[in-house]
């Protein structure tokens, strides 16, 4: 089984809203380009190695529209997990994990339109205890399996050989979803409905809605007696650059402490 997880969202995100809790206007609702790419990769994988593609979404009944579209594009089965719109990623991932446990590959988009954080695929991989490859910018099917390119900080890339089962999240630029045929659009797909098992209780109830602002990064004051020195200190202009990194081998708890200390030292967290 090849699973693809699709999020039903308003395709006109309002950046002034911190948390989107209202159900989308159905006229403007759909899936992100990343989710479309995920579906396309699932279909390509099936076309290459066989099996069945199961499209899933978590949401209210109106979200079934995207499952009908996925079926028209070629998904073999469609499952909606009934949950109120706006459930947190953790709840969504748990609900999905209860259904996709048998899947060899689980495709997701790496973010949704409503300023998603891409955390559902990570939670999902954790819940299932399977490998994860997130933020993929290229995917290739080889005789040996799936090879993917992952985006890293600083413009670097990481080439991964995927061992299945795995959760893969792809960027929207990786594939263009095939156009559904008219016959498939006219067909009436059967959409399976599954309860989420108490997920409603965890739905988000924001106490404050405010515009999204990235967290400020606190930097220490630059050293230097003159303005020029301070600018040089800030930008390292005129001096050879060197990677500021170290490799340490620590137990998990100690490693976590070390990471937190480094983040404080670099000014990412206070």
């Amino acid at each position: 089984m090849i699973a693809v997880c699709l999020k039903w969202v308003d395709r006109r995100p309002d950046p002034a809203r911190a948390i989107v809790v209202a159900e989308p206007d159905e006229r403007f609702a759909g899936v992100s380009a990343a989710d479309q790419a995920a579906l396309e990769w699932a279909l390509r994988q099936r076309d290459r190695v066989g099996g069945e593609v199961v499209a899933l979404t978590v949401g209210p009944s109106a979200a079934e529209a995207i499952l009908r579209d996925a079926s028209a594009a070629g998904a073999d089965r469609a499952i909606r997990i009934d949950l109120a719109f706006g459930a947190p990623s953790r709840t969504v991932a748990t609900a999905l994990a209860g259904v996709v446990g048998e899947a060899s590959t689980i495709w997701c988009g790496d973010y949704s339109f409503d300023r998603g954080t891409g955390s559902v695929p990570a939670f999902l991989a954790h819940d299932l205890g399977v490998a994860q490859a997130l933020g993929l910018v290229a995917v290739e099917f080889t005789d040996a399996g799936i090879v993917a390119l992952r985006r890293l900080d600083g413009g670097r890339r990481e080439r991964l050989s995927i061992t299945r089962p795995a959760v893969l999240s792809v960027e929207g630029s990786t594939a263009l979803l095939r156009r559904a045929s008219l016959r498939n659009l006219l067909a009436s797909p059967i959409i399976e409905r599954v309860g989420a098992g108490g997920g409603h209780a965890d739905a988000l109830h924001p106490v404050e809605a405010r515009p999204y602002r990235p967290r400020p990064r606190v930097l220490p004051a630059p050293a230097g007696a003159t303005a020029l020195d301070r600018v040089r200190s800030l930008t390292a202009a005129g001096s050879a650059t060197a990677a500021h990194g170290e490799t340490v081998t620590l137990e998990p708890a100690a490693a976590a402490d070390r990471i937190l200390a480094a983040l404080v030292e670099w000014g990412y967290i206070p």
Partner: peptide, 9 residues
């Protein structure tokens, strides 16, 4: 005819 695959109706 339509612009979809298999698009005659």
């Amino acid at each position: 005819t339509t612009d979809r695959p298999d698009g005659d109706l």
